[in-house]
Design a protein around this nucleic acid. Structure first.
Ligand SMILES: Nc1ncnc2c1ncn2[C@@H]1O[C@H](COP(=O)(O)OP(=O)(O)OP(=O)(O)O)[C@@H](O)[C@H]1O
Length: 783
DNA sequence: ACCACGGTTTTTTTT
DNA sequence: AAACCGTGGT
């Protein structure tokens, strides 16, 4: 098949908006291809167009294409761009993260390597718990063997594809490592017994599956004629192995990346993967892209000047056609409050001006999540809508994890980890003595803990606790019945469950006793999960629509009933972050770490906390390797800006409970003077300038906190907030109501919460109760 | 079994 | 500063 056979219009369209090097990369046909290029040079665009080209011009079957992205968000963007280019046949392609793609394979074949195909993915929280219980089993002291450190070792080993046996051999008689090896062994055994994998296992077990099952390997090797990997500089060894395996048959592997943007070594990413690609894949073609389309001159030249200080990188000469644009503004602020106020004021100024900027044009980037606090506060005071990404994922909040654990328990009753999580949440009088016994009995009889609960009466050891355990087991089966009884949507089911389990009631009680100030937030989060479920079901329905021409193999993965929808929902909760579901059109300022900003771009970027010790972090300052990774991080941060870059540093900062004095980050000092305007002091040394000189260019003393605007309040929400169904709750204080259980009562208080309302109702002869209006089953009595 | 208290520890970055 | 852990009283 040659290009000549095809309509010139099609080829023109697919090459439109590409420079000659990009076009060359797109048109490349057989054999390995490395696209090595600096920031903003259109690498991602090349992958997208190349995929379209393969299908439209080279007549490659869409299902023969595997495209790996770094985040789920990047995957959905790529999907929709490709769909724009070639239409809905793009549905047949595999586009996603390594983890998401390997899950597809594992869901089909995990039984070949000793898992049930419905295995669960455990999150880092559960990972820690398992490590802890292994440490306890092995009588290892958590002081000497810090849970995080041990888990870090295990995770690193997995990323490097070192299995338990190999780790044991390597550890030899080394005191620490040999014990870690024991924990590693125990940890894997426990996961397997619980039919679970952790995040790393998704890759490791996929490798093991492919390497041990020749027919499975052959199937996918045959299938994937073309494999493309974006952000290749941040792949780890397991991912490298997967790429090799999957592309081996056809040899059409295209990887795209920038060694200067390798910033995930803490997660096992190996920059050598991209540096050695030419050696690794013989007859490899290398294309460099050198024109930057993203940033204005000053931004780009400054970033180039900084990254040039790194040793052992592949030299690139990035240039741009666009003019120099505005200089970078560097602010030396007195402290974090002034830094925050500067940002808030600057954003407000740009938005209210005629510069036609909107909030979504701005992003604030930082090295540590902890730095978001002060910025957040300043934005809130100015009434600027914003959203924070990172930190604790929405799905990782305690209350969300609790309800998800119930959900998992309903579809997989044998999941001991989930059972342990919720058996006493809310309080059911099942304490550690009972749970320990429960675990021991399950272990002894080789059954799941749920099975023991179901037959608790038959275990004399359980004594009086037996009835509580049976009650718990019947709660779960009752929840299961609700799942299969039909007629419910996912969000309705979740809503029902949140009440049935007593989780909501517990939070209501907590709120009443003012024990926990965030009980209300938690209720809101639980309600937010319902919105999330609505959105998820909509997506599922779109996929399941009869006009979607999915291949049978893929269609089998689309949930056909509520039970399957629940499984899919759980899987998404394990794999997705709020960033992945981000609606770009939401008009809010974005606050995120530099790591999570990789691959994104914004009109105006603020980099905060540019102080030595923070950025670069003091830990990295002893090692050249780590110091250079910090510099790459600076490079990534700077190159996110399209038009304007602000960098701020404080003289002293309150962080982690102490105020410390800081000097300006060396990376800032590496920017040539001609690209920078300084405010508030020099980037050099500590010649502390008299503050009064510049103070008029900055906001005055802290303003009296502005009334919190509703806009800001809504935006302070971490997760996207789709329109909630209009609450069908019109109760107001003083209404007379009837409750199915408590009888007649009067409403003392009504407080709106996330599309619902918390009611405080006084019932005759029963007392005061708190309940959520929608689920309470109240009827208003005509007065 | 649960809760309150006090002392200790934490802090990179995340698919 | 805030989150976490273990302890001892109820
Ligand atoms: N040939 C082109 N003409 C005009 N604009 C382009 C061209 N190629 C890419 N761009 C634009 O340049 C910007 C950066 O592109 P892209 O995100 O693909 O770069 P990248 O190399 O993946 O960047 P990074 O490595 O920094 O994530 C995008 O806004 C894209 O639309």
């Amino acid at each position: 098949m040659t290009e000549g056979n095809n309509d010139k219009k099609v080829t023109d369209r697919l090459l439109h908006g590409l420079n000659p090097q990009q076009a060359e990369a797109v048109r490349h046909d057989q054999g390995p291809l490395l696209i090595l290029a600096g920031a903003g040079s259109g690498k991602t665009r090349v992958i997208t167009h190349r995929v379209a080209w393969l299908v439209r011009v080279l007549d490659v079957r869409p299902s023969a294409i595997l495209a790996i992205t770094f985040t789920n968000k990047a995957a959905s963007e790529m999907k929709s761009r490709i769909e724009d280019l070639i239409g809905s046949v793009s549905q047949y392609m595999w586009i996603g993260t390594f983890h998401a793609m390997m899950m597809r394979i594992l869901r089909r074949y995990a039984d070949r390597i000793g898992y049930d195909r419905s295995f669960a993915i455990i999150d880092s929280d559960d990972q820690q718990k398992v490590v802890k219980s292994c440490l306890a089993d092995l009588n290892l002291d958590e002081k000497t063997f810090a849970v995080k450190a041990v888990h870090g070792q295990i995770s690193a080993a997995k990323n490097a594809l070192i299995d338990v046996g190999a780790y044991e051999r390597q550890a030899g008689s080394d005191f620490f490592r040999s014990r870690v090896a024991q924990v590693y062994r125990c940890y894997q055994a426990k996961l397997k017994k619980n039919n679970s994998m952790d995040f790393d296992d998704i890759l490791v077990e996929a490798v093991r599956l492919l390497e041990s099952q020749p027919d499975v390997l052959a199937e996918y090797q045959e299938r994937f004629q073309y494999v493309l990997v974006d952000e290749y500089q941040d792949t780890n060894h397991a991912q490298y192995r997967l790429v090799r395996l999957l592309s081996e048959r056809h040899g059409n592997l295209c990887v795209v990346g920038d060694d200067d943007q390798s910033i995930y070594s803490f997660r096992g990413a190996n920059i050598q993967n991209i540096l050695d690609f030419e050696k690794d894949f013989k007859r490899c073609k290398v294309i460099k892209l050198e024109q930057n389309y993203r940033s204005t001159g000053n931004v780009l030249k400054a970033a180039n000047a900084v990254i040039r200080h790194n040793q052992g990188r592949k030299k690139k000469s990035l240039w741009t056609q666009s003019d120099d644009g505005e200089k970078i503004t560097f602010l030396r602020a007195e402290d974090q409050n002034e830094e925050g106020r500067y940002i808030a004021r600057e954003i407000e100024r740009q938005v209210s001006r005629l510069s036609r900027k909107t909030y979504r044009d701005f992003a604030v980037l930082y090295r540590l999540n902890a730095l978001s606090r002060s910025v957040e506060q300043a934005l809130r005071e100015q009434g600027i809508p914003y959203r924070i990404y990172g930190g604790t994922r929405f799905y990782d909040r305690k209350e969300i994890k609790d309800i998800l654990a119930y959900l998992r328990l309903v579809v997989m009753p044998d999941d001991n980890l989930s059972l342990e999580r919720v058996i006493n949440v809310p309080r059911r009088g099942i304490g550690s003595a009972t749970t320990d016994m429960l675990a021991a009995l399950a272990e002894r009889d080789g059954v799941s803990q749920m099975a023991v609960c179901q037959n608790a009466a038959r275990y004399p050891e359980l004594q009086r606790a037996a009835s509580r355990l049976t009650a718990f087991a019947s709660l779960i089966s009752q929840l299961g019945a609700g799942l299969d009884s039909g007629g419910k949507t996912l969000d309705q089911y979740l809503d029902w469950m949140e009440n049935e389990t007593g989780l909501i009631q517990e939070l209501l009680d907590q709120q009443q006793r003012i024990v926990s100030g965030d009980a209300l937030d938690r209720i809101e989060n639980l309600k937010e999960l319902l919105s999330d479920a609505v959105e998820f079901e909509n997506q599922v329905q779109r996929l399941a629509a009869p006009d979607e021409t999915l291949p049978p193999e893929e269609r089998a993965l689309v949930p056909a009933n509520l039970r399957e929808t629940v499984r899919a929902f759980l899987e998404r909760a394990a794999l997705y972050t709020e960033m992945d579901q981000d609606k770009d059109q939401d008009d809010v300022v974005r606050l995120l770490t530099i790591h999570s900003a990789k691959g994104l771009e914004f009109d105006t970027v603020f980099i905060v906390g540019a102080e030595e010790g923070l950025f670069p972090g003091y830990r990295s300052m002893g090692s050249q390797i780590e110091f250079e990774e910090e510099r790459r991080l600076a490079y990534v941060a700077m190159t996110r800006a399209r038009r304007k870059l602000h960098i701020t540093a404080t003289r002293s900062r309150l962080l982690f409970g102490q105020t410390q004095r800081y000097v300006v980050s060396p990376f800032v000092r590496e920017i040539p003077d001609e690209h920078v305007d300084e405010i508030g002091g020099s980037r050099e040394g500590e010649r502390s300038m008299p503050w009064s000189e510049t103070s008029q260019s900055l906001p005055g003393r802290p303003p009296i906190p502005a009334a919190r605007s509703p806009l800001a309040d809504a935006a302070a929400y971490m997760a996207p907030k789709p329109a909630q169904k209009a609450a069908s709750v019109h109760f107001s204080v003083g209404d007379k109501v009837e409750h199915p259980k408590f009888g007649i009562g009067r409403i003392l208080m009504a407080e709106p919460v996330a599309g619902d309302a918390i009611l405080q109702v006084e019932f005759k002869g029963v007392g005061t109760k708190r309940m959520l209006a929608k689920m309470a089953g109240l009827t208003r009595l005509g007065g």
